[in-house]
Write a protein that binds this DNA or RNA. Structure first.
Length: 328
DNA sequence: GGTAGACCTGGACGC
DNA sequence: GCGTCCAGGTCTACC
């Protein structure tokens, strides 16, 4: 979609009111992780609201999320078509996952108790996708590639494989859809490169129910068990598995990549070979225990914001599309 | 357990 | 406009 064309939710559809935790801030908690810059998401800076598109029982439904009141006030979610009752239930569940509404004020406070640096800003929640499948695909499309390519892959996945809503927004493709696609088609039309076969295999695992989100998030499943399972998935290595752990709400692991090395060198002043820096990073965040990823991530996020201004003022097609670790 | 090279895309650069 | 080089994480083969 051309940068100058701003998608609009024009049709008067269903309106959902969504209750949020008392400390919830839409602009802060959405603009907290890079996925808010990836399709089907579009943060509208001058309105401070999120435009996105959900895949529901009767197809794609574009929606605009806003928080008309102060922090903690309920969200207004306007859809571009009428939703059936079951669709409303499904939409609420997807929105809750995406916005981390399951993370209460007390849970965020527990993080601040371990790392008080983020108490003032209130940061604690990390934006994610409405489904685990989308989170996994977004993670795979962020591996071994510069950020602008990740943006392109996600845009093409939505436009080529997603469904179009009444107002013209594209939803993210479902696992069922990707599982039916030929790897060559994904490669040629979505420019996913060698990830093509891995994405199809991942989708098939989801369709067959072999990736069980309930098990992965269960308190009865240890971090080691969840991490080990993720490592066994196609296209998922240590970085991707660590990232997906965070997306599942497990913050005890880091997702270390070249960006981490840059952070270790420039912000933490670590020296030595890349391998040595990675080891030191692991050690450095040990004191944050079960919250390590958040402490690590918000340091990186703050650094981005110092360079590019507050994230809630980033325009997806300008700042969002241009930033890469090597350019900072 | 550690290491080297292939896998792809897109941006940067030189001509 | 074209060709070359490089960055990026995972996977496989090999030692």
């Amino acid at each position: 979609m051309p940068a100058l064309v701003r998608p609009q939710v024009k049709v008067r559809g269903s309106l959902l009111r969504v209750k949020v935790p008392a400390d919830y801030s839409l602009s802060r908690d959405v603009c907290s992780y890079g996925y808010f810059l990836l399709r089907p998401n579009h943060w509208i800076v001058d309105q401070q609201c999120l435009l996105t598109c959900l895949h529901l029982e009767d197809g794609a439904a574009g929606c605009k999320l806003s928080q008309p009141g102060n922090k903690g006030s309920e969200l207004s979610v306007r859809f571009d078509r009428k939703l059936t009752k079951p669709e409303q239930v499904e939409a609420r569940a997807q929105l809750a996952r995406m916005l981390r509404l399951d993370e209460s004020r007390a849970e965020v406070a527990a993080f601040h108790k371990v790392d008080a640096r983020w108490k003032r800003s209130g940061r604690g929640r990390l934006f994610r996708s409405p489904t685990l499948f989308e989170d996994v695909v977004k993670t795979v499309t962020s591996c071994n590639v510069a950020w602008p390519s990740t943006i392109n892959m996600n845009r093409r996945l939505c436009e080529v494989c997603g469904k179009q809503s009444p107002s013209g927004l594209f939803s993210f493709p479902t696992a069922k859809r990707i599982a039916r696609m030929r790897a060559g088609t994904l490669r040629a039309r979505c420019r996913v490169g060698y990830r093509d076969q891995r994405l199809v295999e991942l989708a098939k695992l989801f369709v067959r129910g072999e990736v069980d989100e309930a098990w992965l998030t269960s308190s009865g499943t240890s971090d080691d068990e969840a991490f080990g399972f993720l490592l066994g998935l196609p296209g998922i290595g240590p970085y991707a598995a660590g990232n997906i752990m965070m997306l599942l709400g497990r913050y005890s692991r880091l997702a270390l990549d070249t960006e981490s090395i840059r952070h270790g060198k420039t912000v933490l002043g670590l020296t030595g070979t890349d391998r040595a820096i990675l080891k030191r990073l692991d050690k450095h965040y040990e004191p944050f225990g079960g919250h390590r990823f958040r402490s690590y991530w918000f340091e990186i996020w703050e650094w981005y914001q110092e360079a590019r201004g507050p994230a809630h003022l980033w325009d997806r097609d300008e700042v969002g599309a241009s930033f890469t670790a090597s350019k900072f």
